[in-house]
Structures are given as structure tokens and as C-alpha cells.
């Protein structure tokens, strides 16, 4: 193992880490809006599966991954709408409705796959796009600027969502609705509308994360393709404390630990591989544990809004 961690290996680890972080980042940024508006959606995994399937299927049928992305965004919005209907309009307990959505999304994506595709089929997915000039920078070029479009999108969304959340008036409304819904309501902000919007945006981003798995990574669809990534994304929202930069940090930490352990395994280990596999999970818990401090959370998180009652 001596001297094996050279710059070439480092590039591989870092580039893979960036790639692996993408689905977490997309789904977690979406969930961030949802939770900021006072709703939490445990159904991210189910939406991701629907996004994964619809993106795959549209790419297969229409021959274009871009159309696949478009279709998955629509499907994600619909799934978000469903969650909004159940948890905002019907004020259902969000814990159960999220698990219900997860089951429904998993089942439906599997069912549609079986009915309309029928077996494992591969598609031509998104191709890596080298960013002109930047990709030729030594070291940083191959790490940061040799990925497919969705990877760039995910990372660009960090500052964009940060701006929207903290600098735009809509973002202010979102935070107000999640924090002091009664006050927001008095000021004429529609709590219901904002929560619907956030759940739809969250659904779209979760679906995009799913589509990234099928048409940006695996280039195929199989049962249970998300394999728990939606739940990790929810956990990363808590890690990131509802801020885009925190979520970026968590996603990168988790994914870099993952790509690092893969490389360690590939280069030869003589301890149980399970230790390597759990590394990302351990690192995430430990990182949060040692960085502990005052925890802030949207005050109305999980509370259905009812006009006229103090929540």
C-alpha cells in the first residue's frame, strides 16, 4: 500500500466522490425546501424510484436523455403534488404519509417497469461533457470538470438554492411559513400555497436524483435501484442543518468516504470488507457528533397548518 495514494489515485477518488454526491445533493436540496416550509417528506425514496423509472423509460422510448429528464421532472412534480394533497390539504401525519408515498412509489415504478419494459434493458444515457479550458487544468480539471450535465446542475444548484432561500422574497416566504406560519398567514402569505410549491420542487429534485441514477450512472433500470439513497438524502438535510452549503458538505463527506473505501478495497485490504462499506455511514455520524452545537430547526416542521389555531 505504500506510496499507492498518489495524485492519480487521488483524482480517481475525488472525481468519483463528486459523481457519487450528485443524487444525494439533488434529493437533499429538494427536501431542504420541503422542510424549510414546515413539512417533512419521508417519501423521498419513493419519488426517486418514480423519477428513476420515468427518466429511464422516456429515454428508452424517445431516445433522448434530455427528454427523459423532462419527463422525470413532471413525474416528480406529480408525486410532490400527491404528498402535498395528503399532508397539506388533508393534514395527514407526515411520518406515515411519507412511508405510504415510499411504498407507493416503489411499487408503482416496479409495476410499470414490469408492464412496459419487462426485463433489464440498457439505454444510452447522459454523456460526460468536458468543460472547455477548465477541464485541462491539471488535477482540478479531471476532478471537477469531466462529468455529465446533471452533476454540474446539482453543484450549481447549491448557490442557486442558497440565493433563492435567503435572498429572494419567495425564499423569505418559505422560511416564514416554516417558522411562524400564523405570522406569515397574517401577513397575507398563503401557507398552503407555499407548502404545495415546496413539495412540488422537492418532488422534482428527488425525481431528478432518481433519473440521475438510471440515465446518468447505471444507464439501466432494475428493481430497488435507489437502494436506500433517498433515506440518506433525508439524513443529510439534518446534517446540513437546512442550508445548501451544509448539505453540500454532508453529501461530499459521505460520497468521498464512499469512493475512498471503494478504492481501498480495490487496492487490496486484509480486513472484513464490511468495515470499508460502513465507512461513509460512520464518518457522517462522527462528523456531526464532533461538530455539535446549538441546533436550530424550522419551528413549524411537521405541524399541519390550521388557520386560527396556535400550532
Amino acid at each position: 500500500m505504500d506510496g499507492i495514494i498518489n495524485s492519480e489515485i487521488m483524482i480517481i477518488i475525488l472525481a468519483a466522490g463528486i459523481r457519487l454526491a450528485t443524487p444525494y445533493l439533488l434529493a437533499a436540496l429538494g427536501e431542504m425546501f420541503v422542510q424549510r416550509s414546515g413539512v417533512y417528506n419521508l417519501g423521498v425514496e419513493g419519488i426517486m424510484m418514480m423519477g428513476a423509472f420515468s427518466g429511464f423509460y422516456a429515454t428508452l422510448q424517445l431516445g433522448s436523455p434530455l427528454l427523459g429528464i423532462a419527463v422525470s421532472l413532471v413525474v416528480g412534480a406529480l408525486m410532490g403534488l400527491l404528498m402535498a394533497l395528503v399532508s397539506v390539504t388533508f393534514k395527514a401525519e407526515q411520518g406515515i404519509s411519507g412511508i405510504g408515498l415510499y411504498m407507493f412509489g416503489w411499487g408503482l415504478s416496479g409495476l410499470l417497469f414490469r408492464l412496459y419494459v419487462g426485463g433489464i434493458t440498457s439505454v444510452e444515457g447522459l454523456k460526460a461533457v468536458k468543460v472547455p479550458l477548465l477541464s485541462s487544468i491539471p488535477f482540478l480539471g479531471p476532478v471537477l470538470f469531466d462529468h455529465n450535465g446533471l452533476v454540474y446542475t446539482a453543484f450549481l444548484l447549491v448557490p442557486v438554492t442558497g440565493f433563492i432561500l435567503f435572498k429572494s422574497s419567495w425564499g423569505l416566504n418559505v422560511r416564514a411559513v416554516g417558522n411562524k406560519p400564523e405570522a406569515a398567514d397574517t401577513l397575507g402569505v398563503s401557507v398552503v400555497l407555499i407548502r404545495y410549491q415546496c413539495l412540488i420542487v422537492g418532488g422534482m429534485l428527488a425525481a431528478l436524483a432518481g433519473a440521475f441514477l438510471t440515465i446518468g450512472q447505471a444507464n439501466m433500470y432494475a428493481d430497488n435501484i435507489t437502494a436506500g439513497r433517498g433515506f440518506i438524502a433525508i439524513a443529510l438535510v439534518y446534517f446540513g442543518r437546512w442550508s445548501p452549503w451544509g448539505i453540500l458538505l454532508g453529501s461530499l463527506l459521505f460520497s468521498l468516504a464512499d469512493s475512498f473505501q471503494s478504492m481501498v478495497q480495490v487496492l487490496g485490504i486484509n480486513f472484513p470488507y464490511e468495515l470499508a462499506v460502513v465507512l461513509p455511514y460512520m464518518v457522517t455520524i462522527i462528523a456531526l457528533a464532533i461538530s455539535y452545537g446549538r441546533v436550530w430547526a424550522p419551528a413549524a416542521l411537521g405541524k399541519p397548518f390550521q388557520r386560527g389555531t396556535r400550532g
Partner: peptide
């Protein structure tokens, strides 16, 4: 190298990429 899962095809794909890059 083990993915630690029987059905995570995305994880297996990434592991294969790591194997090939190495």
C-alpha cells in the same frame, strides 16, 4: 471489492468504474 449489497446495481456500477480506473 464488495459492494455490501445483493441488489445495488448503481453501487456495483460505481465499483466497476473504480476497478477499471485502477
Amino acid at each position: 471489492a464488495y459492494t455490501g449489497s445483493f441488489n445495488d446495481i448503481v453501487g456495483a456500477g460505481n465499483m466497476a468504474k473504480t476497478q477499471m480506473s485502477a
